[in-house]
Amino acid sequence: MSRAFTPGRVVLHGLLLVLSALTVFPLLWIVTAAFTPQDLIAAKSMRFWPESPTLANFTEAARRQPIWAWLWNSILTSALITLGKLLLSLPAGYAFARMRFAGRDAAFWIIVATMSFPAVLAIIPTYIGVVKLQMFDTYSAMIVPMIPYVGFYVFYFRQSFLQLPASMFEAARIDGAGVWRQFTQIALPNVMGAIAALSVISFMGAWNIYLWGQLVLDDAGKKTLTTGIALFADLDAAETPWGALMATGLLSILPVLGVFLLAQRYIVEALAPGLGEK
C-alpha cells in the first residue's frame, strides 16, 4: 500500500518522533548506567553514552545477588499466573457466551464487577491469610492470590467467543461433539489470537508485580527480578551499587521487551474484536 507524501504525514512523523524520544528518554539513564563503570556513574547526573563501557556491572550484580535465580523466578511466577488466569477465564468466558443457565447473569456481573478492583484494597486480609496458612515466603503466596483478577479476561473472552458463528458449533454438534470437545476443538483454536494477546498482557502485568512480591517473598533466592532489585539499595546505603542495580534493571526489562516486540501485532489485531461489537 503506497501512501502519498503529504504535509500532514510529515507533521505526524515529527510529532511522534518527539513523543517517542521523550518517552524513551528516561530509560536512557538505565541503559547507560548499566554499562558505565560503577565509580564513574555517580560523577554525573546524566550521560548519553556510557564512558568506557563495561559488562562488569552484570557480573558484579550476579556476585552480590542471585540475579539469575530472580530471572528464572520471574519467568516462572509470571507464566504460572498467566496460565492460572487463562484456566479460570477461558471456560468461564465460553460458558457465558454460549450457554444458557440459571444464575448466568448474576455470576457474570459478580466477576466483571471486579474488573476495576484495585488490588491494594485486598492486600491486608490476603496477607493475613497467607501468614495464617503458613504460606509466607512461598511461591504459592506470590502466585495464587494474583490469579483471580480475571474480570477483564472473562469479559474479553466472552466477547471473543460471542463472535464465533453459531453455525460452526452447530456442525460440530451434529457430528457428535460434546460440550467439552466443542470448547477445546472448535472454540479455543478460533480465538488463539485473543488468547495470545491476553497472555502477553497478563505476563507483562505479572512480571511487574511489585508491592505484593515485596511483602510475601522474603528469602533472597526466592525473589523475582522486580522485587529483588530493591535489595541492591540497602540501608546504610553508603555506597549504592548503581551499576549493578541498573544492570539488573535492564535485565528485568529485556525479556518482557522481547515478548512484547514479538507479540505486539497480535495484541493490536486481536484485542479489538474482543472489545468490539458483535
Binding site: 539469575w68 523466578n73 503458613q134
Partner: peptide, 29 residues
C-alpha cells in the same frame, strides 16, 4: 490444613533455582 500446606512450602522450583545460583558461581551467595 497446616500440614497439607506446609508441604508446598518447598516446591521443586526452589531446588532448581538454587542449582541455577550455584551454576553461576555466585560464591558469596
Amino acid at each position: 490444613v497446616k500440614d497439607s500446606i506446609t508441604t508446598t512450602k518447598d516446591p521443586p522450583m526452589t531446588q532448581f533455582s538454587r542449582r541455577a545460583i550455584l551454576a553461576t558461581g555466585a560464591a558469596a551467595f
